[in-house]
Amino acid sequence: MNSDVLNQVFMLFLMILVGIYASKMGYIDKKLNVGLSNLLLKITLPLLVINSFLTIKFSKSVLTSAENILLYALIIHVVLIIFSKLAYTKVTDSKKGVSKFLTVFSNSGFMGYPVLKSIYGAKGVFYCAIFGIILNLFMFSYGIMVLKNSKDNSFKELKRAVINPAIIATIIGFILFIFNVKLTTLVISTISSIGSMTSPLSMIIVGIMLADINIGDLFKDKLVYMLTVVKLLIVPAITFVVLKLLNADQIVIGVIVVLEAMPAASNAAVMSLQYGSDENVALKHIFITTVLSIVVIPLVIKLVV
Rank of each mutant, 00 (worst) to 15 (best):
N33G: 05
V304R: 10
G173P: 00
A122I: 12
T185I: 07
F131H: 14
K57Y: 09
P263A: 06
M145R: 07
Q274P: 01
I171N: 01
N267W: 02
L102F: 02
D4V: 03
M25E: 07
N164Y: 00
S3C: 00
I208S: 07
R160I: 07
P236C: 11
T228F: 01
V9C: 07
V257P: 04
L137E: 01
L245A: 14
G216L: 08
A269S: 15
L246E: 03
V162N: 05
N2A: 03
D29N: 15
I238T: 10
Q250V: 13
D4S: 14
T89E: 11
S99F: 02
K42M: 10
G207L: 00
T198M: 11
A22W: 03
S106K: 07
I130Y: 09
M197Y: 06
K159A: 13
G112M: 12
K222S: 12
G143L: 09
A161V: 03
V270A: 15
T290K: 06
P236K: 09
P263W: 03
V5N: 08
S65A: 12
T170H: 04
V187N: 11
V125W: 07
V291F: 10
K57G: 06
M1Q: 08
F177P: 00
S61K: 13
A248F: 03
F177E: 10
R160N: 15
T228W: 00
I16F: 02
L135F: 08
G207D: 06
V98A: 08
K117R: 13
N149A: 13
V115R: 11
T185R: 10
Y27G: 03
I16W: 00
V187S: 13
I194T: 13
I175G: 05
N153V: 05
S193H: 08
F58Y: 14
I205Y: 10
G35Y: 09
L176K: 05
S65K: 13
L39M: 13
I297Y: 10
V281Y: 05
T190P: 00
I119G: 12
N214Q: 06
A248C: 14
S61W: 05
T64K: 15
N7M: 09
L243D: 06
L74K: 05
L39Y: 05
G97Y: 04
T64W: 08
V295Y: 06
K148R: 15
N164S: 13
S52D: 04
V18N: 10
T92S: 15
N136V: 08
V18A: 15
L71Q: 08
V162I: 15
N149I: 07
S141E: 06
L14V: 08
L137N: 05
F138P: 00
H285A: 12
V300K: 04
K156G: 13
Y142K: 11
E67V: 14
T198L: 09
T55H: 10
V257D: 12
